[in-house]
Design a protein around this nucleic acid. Sequence first.
DNA 1: AAAATTTGCTAACAAACGTTAGGTTGTCTA
DNA 2: TAGACAACCTAACGTTTGTTAGCAAATTTT
Lengths: 195, 195
Amino acid sequence: MNIGSKTATRKQQIEKEAAALFHEKGYAASSMRDLAQRVGIEAGSLYSHFKSKESILQKICFDMANSFFQSLDAIENLGLDAELQLRNAIKAHLSVLTEDPEETIVFQNEWKHLSEPYLGDFISMRKDYENRFRKILEQGIKDGLFENHDLKILSLTLLSALNNTSTWFKKSRDKSEDIGEKLSNIFLTGLLKQK
Amino acid sequence: MNIGSKTATRKQQIEKEAAALFHEKGYAASSMRDLAQRVGIEAGSLYSHFKSKESILQKICFDMANSFFQSLDAIENLGLDAELQLRNAIKAHLSVLTEDPEETIVFQNEWKHLSEPYLGDFISMRKDYENRFRKILEQGIKDGLFENHDLKILSLTLLSALNNTSTWFKKSRDKSEDIGEKLSNIFLTGLLKQK
DNA sequence: AAAATTTGCTAACAAACGTTAGGTTGTCTA
DNA sequence: TAGACAACCTAACGTTTGTTAGCAAATTTT
């Protein structure tokens, strides 16, 4: 059965190769023949594992979405103050992102090619996730810990900065936790030396 | 001749409509027949104005790139301190971005579909632009004005935050200068109230 | 050992794609 | 007014696309 094993199944191999291909060329410009060649099989054979091209994209997008969601679950309701909660959320987000950088980029850039009802589901999941980050920032402001910045701009800025790391992160060079700490410090203490 | 006039030429109209279409569906998933229908002509007629589909993308990408470059020219070598220089650079970048939000998004997301030598030119222009932002930050650190954050992470974070505004900016609702000031404050003073 | 399932191949389909050739119409220029 | 040119149309081209049907081999389950 090979469930939970370390040897990748064909299906997993296809998914991994698809993530790399979709990342490189974009979903729409990637053909099933392209993908098949990378895997080392014929185009038609892909349909023994996925029922359509879009279903591969769906798998990548929703697997990543679930990973990001779960990474936040472990942090909330721990009674931490806003600063620690934010530092942990940043660390958690980057941990998921750096584990699968190519899947993350596909998740970020290619979701618009999902068809309904997947598209709607995806968008609302994304909105929920943004809201959970916003809640942390809101709490920090309420508690008088954070400056009273514009909440919408603040949360979107933070998330865009986190997500952008996927474009330059290299597993062989960068450490997820280092980046997390540096990003946390940038946002928490700001650029100016004296206040 | 209509040069410099306010009535858009067909070519400009096609470019505008292409930006909207490429933004909505992505370059690869947008067909010339799609585009022609939006303009109100037949697909073949597009070739009286552009010699290929890619040449439309080239026009959009390099026009935007030039706009962003020029917006920085006016700021450098004015003898401003790093904080003011940064505030002005942010304002300038957002001014260009908010003037043509859809072109900006295409510029950001679809450049990978350029072929050589345009692709290489584009990438090096992008790198140059990033470096000019980095220089401002570097100067601020050297002068003891800014905290000694990781320069690479800092500059990429700042630019990603700026660029991300194109995804939610609405001309009817948002003011470019407001966003610039709020973003500047977030980055300059940070989240924490006391140091 | 028989049966069922998984995995893959080949060949082909209908549709959509970017692009071109050749012709028509209208408008500006000499 | 004659000619040049720009803008647009129709029709078609060769390619590539996602996907399916039918079949073969291998592997797993019963």
